[in-house]
Amino acid sequence: MADPSHRTQRRAGISYQARLTNLVEPDEQRAAAETRIVWSVPRPAVADARVGWHRLNPKRLRIEFTDGSWLAFTVPIAEPGTPLREIAAALTGR
């Protein structure tokens, strides 16, 4: 049996990327330097993730945790919901 202390633990996280106000698009190195993790949780703490309706917006990602807490994110109605569905699939394996 493998020793669990030698496994890499996967985490679910939320990052923040500062918007730049200059007129020139930043290169990848600068964008990466301005991105920071603002919250994370061990992946096994995620119980479920799904995209569904919230009021009149069908693009709400709800992430539920094993302790009963949850987070929800929506995107503007005009934006595609594909990124949210991809996140939910990655978190749940569905």
Rank of each mutant, 00 (worst) to 15 (best):
1 M>G: 13
1 M>D: 11
1 M>A: 14
1 M>I: 11
3 D>L: 05
4 P>Y: 06
4 P>D: 02
4 P>I: 01
4 P>R: 08
7 R>H: 10
8 T>D: 14
8 T>M: 14
9 Q>N: 11
10 R>C: 11
11 R>P: 00
11 R>N: 05
11 R>C: 14
11 R>M: 12
13 G>E: 09
13 G>A: 13
14 I>N: 03
15 S>M: 14
17 Q>G: 11
18 A>Y: 06
18 A>R: 10
19 R>C: 09
20 L>C: 00
20 L>D: 14
20 L>I: 09
22 N>V: 06
22 N>F: 05
22 N>Y: 07
23 L>K: 13
23 L>I: 07
23 L>F: 13
24 V>Y: 00
24 V>I: 07
24 V>N: 00
28 E>H: 02
28 E>N: 02
29 Q>P: 06
30 R>Q: 13
30 R>S: 07
32 A>L: 03
32 A>D: 06
33 A>E: 06
35 T>E: 10
36 R>P: 00
36 R>A: 08
37 I>M: 15
38 V>K: 02
39 W>R: 03
40 S>T: 01
41 V>N: 05
42 P>L: 02
42 P>I: 03
42 P>F: 05
42 P>E: 08
42 P>W: 06
43 R>K: 09
44 P>A: 09
44 P>F: 08
45 A>L: 12
46 V>P: 04
46 V>A: 07
47 A>L: 15
47 A>G: 06
48 D>V: 09
50 R>A: 15
52 G>M: 08
52 G>L: 02
53 W>M: 11
53 W>A: 10
53 W>K: 12
54 H>L: 14
54 H>K: 15
55 R>F: 09
57 N>F: 01
57 N>E: 05
57 N>Y: 01
58 P>C: 05
58 P>H: 02
58 P>F: 04
59 K>R: 06
59 K>F: 00
59 K>Y: 01
59 K>W: 04
60 R>A: 06
61 L>A: 13
63 I>F: 03
63 I>E: 03
64 E>G: 05
66 T>C: 11
66 T>D: 09
67 D>G: 07
67 D>S: 10
67 D>F: 03
67 D>E: 03
68 G>T: 03
69 S>T: 15
69 S>P: 05
70 W>S: 15
70 W>I: 11
70 W>A: 15
70 W>F: 15
71 L>D: 07
72 A>S: 10
73 F>Q: 07
74 T>W: 11
74 T>V: 15
75 V>E: 04
75 V>I: 05
78 A>V: 13
79 E>C: 12
80 P>E: 14
81 G>H: 02
82 T>I: 10
82 T>H: 08
83 P>L: 11
83 P>N: 09
85 R>H: 06
85 R>L: 02
85 R>C: 01
87 I>Q: 11
87 I>Y: 04
87 I>R: 08
90 A>T: 14
90 A>L: 15
91 L>H: 00
91 L>T: 07
91 L>P: 03
91 L>N: 01
92 T>K: 04
93 G>P: 01
94 R>F: 08
